[in-house]
C-alpha cells in the first residue's frame, strides 16, 4: 500500500502562495483558515539580508502528537500515512491544536456558512444553488473517504470542529495529486508514495540533502524539505497574511 508524503524543494519555491489559494478553493476552507501556509522570511541586517520562503502544509507526522492527544480518536493515522480528522467525531476540544508544534490546525470558531468570503446569500445570486453556504462548493468533500469510510475530507464543514490539511484525501482517492502540489507553478511541492523508491519524492530525497521541520520533537513528519535550511530564530516573518475570524 502506498504511504504518502511530500518533499518540498525550497530552492524552487517563489513564495507566491498559489498553493494556499488552490487549497482554499479545493477544500472550501472558511475565511482565516489556512491549511497550507507559506512563510515569507527575511534574515540578516541591511545590506547582508536574505529572503526565503517555506510552505508549511500539515506534516502528517508518523508520531503525531495530535493523534496521541485526541480524546475521541477523531484525529487518526491512516494506513496510507495520512493524518486525518474525522469531522463526524471531533468534539472540538482543540487538544490537537495545542499539541501540534507546527500550528497547522484550524478550528471553526463560527458557523462556516457565516464565515465565507463574501455574502453569497445576496439576492442577486438567487439562481445559484449554495452548498455549505458557498456557490463553488466541492461536492467530493461530503463523501466518506478511505477504507474506513470516514468523513475526513474538506473544510468549513461545521461549527466547533477542528480541521486541517488532508493532503486532499478526496483527490488521492481519484488518483489525483493534492491541490497544492498539482498546482505549484514551479514544481516545489513533490508528492507521492515514499515507500516506492521510484516515486518522484523518493528520488528527490535520494538526490538532495534534506531535513524535516522540528526534527527534535520526534514527531517524524512525512513532509521533507530539500534545497534549503530550516528556519531559525533569526528568520523574521514578513508579509504575514490576514488570518482573522471576526464576529
Amino acid at each position: 500500500m502506498a504511504r504518502y508524503g511530500m518533499v518540498i524543494d525550497l530552492s524552487r519555491c517563489h513564495g507566491c502562495r498559489a498553493c494556499m489559494v488552490a487549497c482554499k478553493v479545493e477544500n472550501n476552507t472558511p475565511k482565516g483558515s489556512f491549511w497550507n501556509y507559506v512563510f515569507r522570511f527575511e534574515e540578516g541586517v541591511f545590506p547582508e539580508t536574505r529572503v526565503s520562503f517555506l510552505p508549511r502544509p500539515c506534516m502528517h507526522c508518523d508520531n503525531a502528537p495530535c493523534v496521541k492527544v485526541c480524546p475521541v480518536g477523531s484525529r487518526h493515522k491512516t494506513l496510507e500515512g495520512l493524518t486525518l480528522t474525522d469531522w463526524d467525531r471531533c468534539i472540538g476540544c482543540r487538544y490537537c491544536e495545542v499539541a501540534c508544534p507546527y500550528g497547522v490546525n484550524c478550528f471553526n470558531w463560527k458557523d462556516p456558512k457565516k464565515n465565507r468570503y463574501l455574502d453569497w446569500s445576496d439576492p442577486s445570486l438567487e439562481g445559484v444553488e449554495l452548498s455549505h453556504g458557498m456557490p463553488y462548493a466541492n461536492p467530493d468533500l461530503d463523501l466518506p473517504q478511505g477504507s474506513q469510510g470516514r468523513h475526513t475530507a474538506g473544510g468549513g464543514r461545521m461549527k466547533g470542529v477542528v480541521e486541517k490539511c488532508t493532503f486532499c484525501v478526496h483527490r488521492l482517492e481519484k488518483g489525483l495529486l493534492p491541490a497544492c502540489a498539482a498546482n505549484c507553478p514551479v514544481g516545489a511541492l513533490v508528492f507521492g508514495d515514499l515507500d516506492d523508491p521510484e516515486s518522484p519524492p523518493s528520488q528527490l530525497l535520494r538526490e538532495k540533502p534534506h531535513f524535516r521541520l522540528l526534527e527534535g520533537e520526534g514527531t517524524e513528519p512525512r513532509v521533507y524539505y530539500v534545497g534549503g535550511a530550516p528556519p531559525t530564530t533569526a528568520s523574521r516573518q514578513i508579509e504575514a497574511v490576514k488570518a482573522r475570524v471576526e464576529r
Binding site: D62, N63, A64, V67, K68, C70, G73, S74, R75, H76, K77, T78, L79, D86, S147, Q148, R150
Partner: peptide
C-alpha cells in the same frame, strides 16, 4: 483503543 505510537486507524477506535 490501543496504546503506543498511533500508526493506523486502529488506534483511533476502541
Amino acid at each position: 483503543a490501543p496504546l503506543g505510537a498511533p500508526t493506523s486507524p486502529a488506534f483511533s477506535d476502541p
